[in-house]
Amino acid sequence: MRTALEQAVQLVLSGDYQLINIISVTLQMSIPSSVISLILGVPLGVLLAFCSFRGKGALVILNRTLMGLPPVVCGLLCYMLFSGVGPFRHFRLMYTIPLMIIAQVILITPIVIGNMESFAQRITPAVRETARGLGLGRGRTFLLLVSETRYQVFSTYLLGFARSIAEVGAVSMVGGAIAYKTNVMTTAIMNYTNRGDFTLGVALGVILLAMSLVLNLTVSLIQGRLSR
């Protein structure tokens, strides 16, 4: 373990090209996919909490089911759609970062929707009743509800990013873990471990954890400052 930690530090300090490439591909995939999921999922989650309509319960259950979608199933779906025999083969996205992002968005968006829906659901009756008492219309009440969920967006983003950065199944299926192209930290750890290079695998794991820690601290600091 000590050797692995030393090697992790050495790898970072040496500016190893392969390592920098792996980190770069990881971030190129994780940041856009988590941000896109947030942009899609936050309004949808709040809307789901705010609106009452026939079939809402079924929609909530469907979303909760999709929250547990196995990544390999998502990878398989994307593979079938975008591979040489799939209907979207003309986009030529197989084994590219954009397809890895698409797979991640499919996985993360239900999580964002579910998280926001369950938070907004808790405050919706009170917000709605107060807004009604003030004579505010439905549109303004919805905007107020969105505004009331703004601090929850931070923790939801962290959840989405954590899922994105830690995911292996879907990204290895649609990305192929091609060195210097689609190899992200999780797939690289798997490859190193399969080759018996545990030290390098552990070193990458430590770097992955450190990245997650830095992001968590940064987001928590911003959230703390804004909510004061």
Partner: peptide, 14 residues
């Protein structure tokens, strides 16, 4: 005419 209503637990907006 307009009706104003103060609920038992009014919500303080953030």
């Amino acid at each position: 005419g307009p009706v104003g209503y103060l609920p038992q637990r009014p919500y303080p907006f953030q």
